[in-house]
Design a protein around this nucleic acid. Structure first.
Lengths: 124, 124
DNA sequence: TCTTTGTATTATTTATTATAATACAAATAA
DNA sequence: TTATTTGTATTATAATAAATAATACAAAGA
């Protein structure tokens, strides 16, 4: 899976990496058990410091998306914790997005349609 | 409208202020044309520097949520630009949230139900 | 033994966020 | 007029976060 960094973005690099890997897992581009690029490999590939990649991997590990050992590197989690609720942080962000949409005059139906499309296609 | 700052949060103070005002507008707690607290007043009230409040107001102004003059201070916009699409940033965040939900095994129906509730109630 | 893996350490640089102390122009009220 | 309140601009500084840099170490395997 190819990671692309946007230097113009105000989102920190380690967060961009984290987000793209979560998206990759969600879309099935990254299979459970599959090894992620090595810390040094990915750092070289996208031209950043290896500790920045490590920071992203640590975050993913802490969130339960990946696991690691010194033999096989960092791999995608095989059994994700199933949960019926969004995280507190995700709920806050969702509220923000919906507030903006409502102020912009978007109807509930239109918003739900966008969500449905993203949920099904995972992209655009 | 009362603004509450969470010191433990990793969200910058100016961003927290901005988010709560956008939420207030969306929920109708802040009426179009209504004056926001003054820069100095709000800063004193929540015990922060006035330039931090100013930064939040500048952001809101740039986003088109408020306008200002030296006579009436900063007021809620009266005519919001209507748009049928989410902003690019909002779309990116929405994709992230949905990716996380999908990995957690949440069904599309459950996710849409949450969105519907937030859209209608604007809270919790 | 040598290489690769993640990880730990320490230091430094850069960028962002927040504070501080003033100052100014515009508008209003006294 | 004078005094006050408004947002805003300026300049400096401090505190925090993000990113880089250069090594080093332990675990595992070839």
């Amino acid at each position: 899976m190819i990671i692309k960094i946007n230097d113009m973005s105000d989102i920190p690099i380690y967060q961009q990496i984290r987000n793209q890997i979560v998206a990759g897992i969600s879309e099935g581009k990254l299979e459970p058990g599959e090894q992620l690029p090595t810390v040094r490999g990915l750092a070289t590939e996208i031209g950043i410091n290896s500790m920045t990649v490590n920071k992203a991997y640590q975050l993913l590990k802490q969130e339960g998306y990946v696991y690691s050992d010194r033999r096989n590197g960092v791999c995608v989690q095989k059994n994700f914790i199933q949960k019926e609720q969004l995280s507190k942080a995700a709920m806050e962000e969702l509220k923000c997005i919906i507030a903006e949409a409502k102020i912009g005059g978007m109807s509930k139906e239109t918003f739900l349609q966008i969500c449905e499309t993203v949920f099904e296609e995972g992209n655009v």
